[in-house]
């Protein structure tokens, strides 16, 4: 579903992502782990077509994001780490806008907005302006907007930050549901327990370079993901 091939991105002299290759297949929840500034957000933004990159290739369902960004974006949903949404819209207006862009039919959007707004307990607040939303409510709205066009690939940057325990639990279930239906999830997180419980595969990145990847069992072996992560950080230091 998502192939990252020898991705390299530099900012001036700093190499944010260095020759990174990853392959996320349909049905997989793929965790992306690394310390602050490791290059996770840069990689994620490049995969969503938000940020240009210097070399390498990114394929979404076999289509190059460089050559046909619109075709790729129509299959992707992106949830950023900090949900800055249009504060001049109400929640429902924002969802309607996203649904219009993805050309979601009238029946489908009604059904999916109703479903996910109920799941995230946001239905009553949909008529409120987004400027009146708390951080958590904005995060929920960003998640709902990502789900209402039934994407094949969901790319998320720290999706659980700001979500209450109930919403985080619901999101985990939804993530699993998407993968069970043939979709794929690629997300970054600092919460290693979440990654350990939720992910089928995981990749650890440091200073833009991939230092370990594979199935959860391959990466952690007999220890916990946390010990592996700390060990790798120390080894590399």
């Amino acid at each position: 579903m998502l192939k990252i091939i020898n991705l390299t991105k530099t900012f001036g002299d700093k190499c944010a992502v260095d020759d990174l290759s990853l392959h996320i297949q349909s049905g997989e929840i793929y965790g992306f782990i690394g310390h602050n500034g490791a290059g996770k957000t840069t990689t994620i933004k490049a995969c969503c077509g938000i940020m240009d990159f210097d070399s390498g290739e990114i394929l979404v369902d076999g289509v190059s994001i460089k050559k046909d960004p619109l075709a790729c974006k129509s299959k992707i949903a992106y949830i950023p780490d900090n949900p800055d949404l249009y504060e001049f819209m109400t929640g429902i207006q924002y969802l309607q806008f996203v649904a219009d862009i993805f050309k979601v039919s009238k029946q489908k959007r009604s059904q999916l907005i109703e479903k996910y707004a109920d799941v995230f307990l946001l239905t009553q607040d949909l008529a409120q302006p987004i400027s009146a939303y708390s951080h958590g409510m904005k995060q929920k709205l960003a998640v709902i907007s990502a789900l209402i066009h039934e994407p094949k690939l969901v790319i998320m940057d720290e999706p659980f930050v700001g979500l209450d325990p109930v919403a985080a639990h619901s999101l985990k279930q939804i993530m699993r549901g998407i993968c069970d239906n043939g979709g794929a999830i690629f997300f970054s997180t600092h919460v290693l327990e979440v990654a350990e419980k939720l992910c089928d595969k995981v990749a650890i990145i440091k200073e833009g370079k991939l230092i370990k990847s594979g199935t959860m069992e391959q990466v952690r072996g007999d220890s916990s993901l946390e010990s592996v992560f700390l060990e790798l950080e120390e080894d590399d230091a």
Binding site: I92, A99, I101, K106, E114, T123, Q124
Partner: peptide, 13 residues
């Protein structure tokens, strides 16, 4: 303002 469920309209891009 409480959201009241209603029929949603569609718009072109």
């Amino acid at each position: 303002r409480r959201y009241v469920r209603r029929e949603l309209d569609t718009k072109s891009v």
